[in-house]
């Protein structure tokens, strides 16, 4: 799965978790919680768990703590995909 496809899927998940219209969710690899009002510590957990479900992966607490940018999340999902 390419990074572009993962990013697109994460954008859809973010729209659902943040209760936003998908067209209003503008994300790039550099997007952070500071760029999206609805992205706070609470919605962050739901975002992570929704991403885990979608991609059938599991993150460690340390990995979750380190996530800052959408690009970090994409890279983590990519790294956990089966070869």
């Amino acid at each position: 799965m390419s990074r572009e496809v993962i990013l697109g899927d994460i954008r859809e998940i973010m729209a659902d978790v943040f209760d936003m219209d998908v067209d209003d969710v503008v994300v790039t690899p550099d997007t952070t919680a500071d760029d999206i009002e609805e992205w706070d510590s609470l919605s962050h957990i739901r975002l992570i768990v929704a991403v885990e479900r979608r991609f059938k992966v599991k993150f460690t607490n340390a990995e979750i703590e380190r996530l800052r940018r959408v690009g970090d999340l994409v890279a983590l999902v990519e790294a956990k995909q089966p070869a």
Binding site: S41, L42, I45, R46, I48, V49, E52, N61, I64
Partner: peptide, 14 residues
């Protein structure tokens, strides 16, 4: 405490 609660939140949502 908020860190501990976050760990429980992750478990709960999973």
């Amino acid at each position: 405490t908020c860190d501990r609660l976050r760990e429980e939140e992750i478990f709960f949502h999973r």
